[in-house]
Amino acid sequence: MPFEPFTAEWAQVYKEKLNQNPQYRQAAKTWEGPVVFQVEKDPAIGLEEDRAVFLDLSQGECRDARVATEEDLQAAEVIISGDTQTWKQVFDRKLEPISTLMRGRLKLVKGNMSVLSAYVMASKQLLASALEVDTEIPEGLD
């Protein structure tokens, strides 16, 4: 059953996928700290507010994944944000995740790129697991 991205249900499936990804577990074994993925609001498709998922990550394990609260956004060490079109292209596998981040199409709105770049393989697997979730992109995005 497909889930709308960055919802509570989607986050739960994402957590399962991430914890089943051995490459992520290996690459992220020294990575500690919460990460948020955020999609920017897009009233044209009915997304009136930014939406974000909070991932509580610890040494290769995702301990929790949920819709991010205001406190979560404050607590997150890394926030990666993009507009709906960019995320759609990432989910459709038309954009490659790491180069999209490097190009600034997915923006690092919080965090330090030189720190994140130490975990490039973990970041790649983090996004790869997101693409494993059966995701239903909202209508209206071409």
């Binding site: 490659e96 790491i98 180069s99 030189s114 770049s117």
Partner: peptide
Amino acid sequence: VNKRMELLLEPAIGVVQDIIG
């Protein structure tokens, strides 16, 4: 181009990390 870039970015960033780390 995109697929090749994605393949190489990881070791390329790794080279930089090997220096700065």
